[in-house]
């Protein structure tokens, strides 16, 4: 999506407005000096949001809107990847590095899968994944003594 498209601008303006408002609302509990920066940032956000909204309104007549926010998105992959990444982060502690990483690698690979892969290519992938995991595990846990979960 191109920068400057209307939907994008409006969403950004709404977001900035919401954030600024929320930030301001929390400053009541802060000390005087501690509130200076959040307040300033919040006010600038709100002003910028208004400016952006204004620009969108004034550009009403401007040509056809380019790609909408939602076009061109391959939803299954997007959701799959997001869930995988979140799960990876959340499960690291409970389940441990190696199992989660192995699953994660597999899952991300699946979300990126497009063309048919030959058996040889698949085997290569598995080999690379194992090598990568073993290598990093060995490097961190054994050589560098960084405790992996």
């Amino acid at each position: 999506m191109e920068l400057g498209s209307r939907t994008g601008d409006l969403i950004a303006a709404a977001l900035a407005l919401a954030l600024g408002g929320y930030a301001l609302s929390q400053t009541g509990e802060m000390s005087e000096l501690g509130a200076v920066f959040p307040t300033t940032a919040a006010i600038v956000l709100i002003l910028a949001a208004l400016g952006l909204a204004l620009r969108v309104v004034l550009r009403r007549g401007d040509g056809a809107e380019q790609q909408s926010f939602w076009s061109g998105l391959e939803w299954p992959r997007l959701i799959g990847l997001s869930i995988t990444l979140l799960a990876w982060a959340l499960l690291l502690k409970p389940i441990g590095f190696l199992p989660v990483a192995a699953l994660g690698l597999l899952a991300v690979g699946i979300t990126a899968y497009r063309e048919r892969m030959s058996l040889k290519a698949f085997a290569l992938h598995l080999l690379a994944a194992t090598a990568l995991l073993a290598g990093f595990y060995g490097l961190f846990a054994l050589v560098l003594r960084v405790p992996l979960p």
């Binding site: 995988t84 994660g104 597999l106 991300v108 690979g109 990126a112 690379a128």
Partner: peptide, 8 residues
């Protein structure tokens, strides 16, 4: 399919 998991 290899680059993405690697980066992750």
């Amino acid at each position: 399919t290899a680059l993405a998991p690697g980066i992750a």
